[in-house]
Amino acid sequence: MIRFENVGMRYGAGPEVLRDISFELKPGSFHFLTGASGAGKSSLLRLMYLAHRPSRGLITILDEDIATIPRNRLPELRRKIGVVFQDFRLMSHLTCFENVALPLKINGAGSGVIKKYVSELLNWVGLADQANARPATLSGGQKQRAAIARAVISRPKLLVADEPTGNVDDALAVRLLFLFEELNRQGTTVLIATHNESLIRRFRHPVLHLEDGQLVPSPLRPIVPLRDRAPPPPDSRRFSDPIYPDAPGEGGRHG
């Protein structure tokens, strides 16, 4: 479970860029995060992927109170969180394959496992023939897909994505959303910051809306209780090739 209670955040000694943020994400839920540029979306996500400490308030991430968690347990918690950064943050000296493999490598996975999973996933996001390319030689959309692949490779319990479809065309954006939904079906809690209104309309997930550092009801769609949500569009499954065909299901939001 993810819970924010009266959270405030500031950069250094600057003003609070987030104020009185309170919300809760149930395990296995799928939310969009919207708001104008500079409203604080990336800042909120930074709190969620433990890159920043709140200046006040309580944050619970995957049932851990992050104010009290000892430093040496942070890596274990972070491994359960997949992050797609707004600026990708791929390592320029590593190949596409190595970048995507990094979380598995850090987790101590063997090269056989890494090869299998990374190849499969690169295939799925359409980067199989770019596996040995350096990020500098990839297009914006290719980098984005590599960044997404790295975020989901270790099947995180929480996926946090900052504008994950900002650099791809609508068809690919939809395809990537299916990937997130597939992950979500396997139990991952998903939060996606996006400006893309057509995506929000098409994928009918609840919306958290930020305005000037505060959560307000979304003009597009007020936050709807999970149970009342409409089922995903029927065509979503057509594209959602199973990423890990041999992996046991972990009970998604329907389970």
Binding site: Y49, L50, A51, N72, L74, P75, E76, R78, R79, V83, R89, M91, L102, P103, I106, N107, R150
Partner: peptide, 16 residues
């Protein structure tokens, strides 16, 4: 700094 922060964020221990 940035690479180190990234490694931290994807779950690397200090010893790694």
């Amino acid at each position: 700094r940035e690479s180190i922060e990234l490694l931290h964020l994807i779950g690397a221990h200090d010893r790694y």
